[in-house]
């Protein structure tokens, strides 16, 4: 039985890039390399139909994935309605619809 000192060891809140599981990130980069072109301008999120009424943020989501922060993505990605407006406005030509499909496939294959 662990001793109770009245406090706990706080979990880290920083992104631990070394420890994080980047399997999905690697799968994504391999299958849709255009994701590497993102410069984080936010055009996608600004025009996102879903993002206007929910906390879905496609830019933040794929940035988290690339950092290996994948705890919530399974739920997150379901919010996307696949309308493709993000792709129409992207100034770097990132194939965002395929980014979504690829992440879904990655979740399916890699858990």
């Amino acid at each position: 039985m662990a001793k109770n000192f009245g406090y706990k060891i706080l979990p880290g809140e920083s992104i631990d890039f070394d420890r994080n599981d980047k399997l999905i990130a690697r799968y994504l980069v391999e299958h849709e390399p255009s994701i590497n072109l993102c410069i984080g301008c936010g055009s996608c999120t600004a025009t996102c139909s879903t993002g206007h009424f929910t906390d879905f943020n496609i830019r933040r989501m794929h940035t988290f994935i690339l950092r290996g922060e994948t705890k919530h993505i399974k739920k997150e990605i379901q919010k996307c309605m696949f309308c493709g407006k993000c792709q129409l406005v992207c100034p770097r030509g990132v194939n965002l619809r395929n980014v979504i499909l690829t992440i879904n496939r990655a979740i399916e294959h890699l858990g």
């Binding site: 936010g42 999120t45 600004a46 025009t47 996102c48 993002g51 943020n57 830019r59």
Partner: peptide, 23 residues
């Protein structure tokens, strides 16, 4: 991402405020 006009000819700008992560 886009701009539109109000009835008084002012403009509505839409962007993502990327540092808060919200449209």
């Amino acid at each position: 991402s886009e701009c539109a006009e109000n009835p008084d000819h002012s403009l509505v700008l839409k962007t993502e405020d990327t540092l808060t992560g919200r449209p």
